[in-house]
Lab assay of single mutants.
Amino acid sequence: TTIHVGDLTLKYDNPKKAYEIAKKLAKKYNLTVTIKNGKITVT
């Protein structure tokens, strides 16, 4: 599972963990989490 945050690309083997991290990042920086085709993007 890949999380895209701006220019950063973070890879995680565990999709659930990746989603949790994405949610935390989104909350911290007041951003939105988008999931599309298995890719998690924080914008």
Rank of each mutant, 00 (worst) to 15 (best):
K24C: 13
T2M: 09
T43P: 01
V33M: 11
K28W: 09
K39Q: 15
H4N: 08
Y29I: 02
K24R: 13
Y19M: 15
K23P: 00
T1E: 05
L25Y: 04
G6I: 08
T41Y: 15
K36N: 13
Y29A: 02
G38R: 01
K24H: 12
Y19I: 13
V42E: 01
T9I: 15
P15N: 07
E20C: 07
G38W: 04
D13L: 09
N37M: 07
K16R: 13
I35G: 01
V42K: 00
K27R: 10
T43A: 13
A26D: 00
K23V: 14
V42F: 13
K28I: 08
K17I: 14
I40A: 01
A22E: 00
G38F: 04
G38T: 03
N30F: 06
V33R: 00
P15R: 07
N37I: 08
Y12S: 04
P15T: 07
H4D: 06
Y29Q: 02
K39D: 13
T43W: 09
L10F: 11
T32G: 04
K27V: 09
V33T: 01
L31P: 00
L31Y: 05
V33L: 14
A26E: 03
A22K: 00
T32M: 09
T9M: 12
K16N: 09
T41A: 06
I21Q: 06
N30I: 02
P15A: 11
Y19S: 06
N37S: 09
Y12H: 03
K24S: 09
V42W: 05
L25V: 06
D7Y: 10
I35H: 04
H4T: 15
G6A: 06
K16T: 12
K17A: 09
T32A: 10
K11M: 13
V42Y: 03
T9K: 08
K11Q: 13
K11G: 04
K28H: 07
K36H: 13
E20T: 08
N30G: 14
D7P: 10
I40N: 01
D13A: 10
T41L: 13
D7S: 15
N14C: 05
T41D: 05
K16A: 13
V33H: 00
V5L: 14
Y29E: 01
A22Y: 05
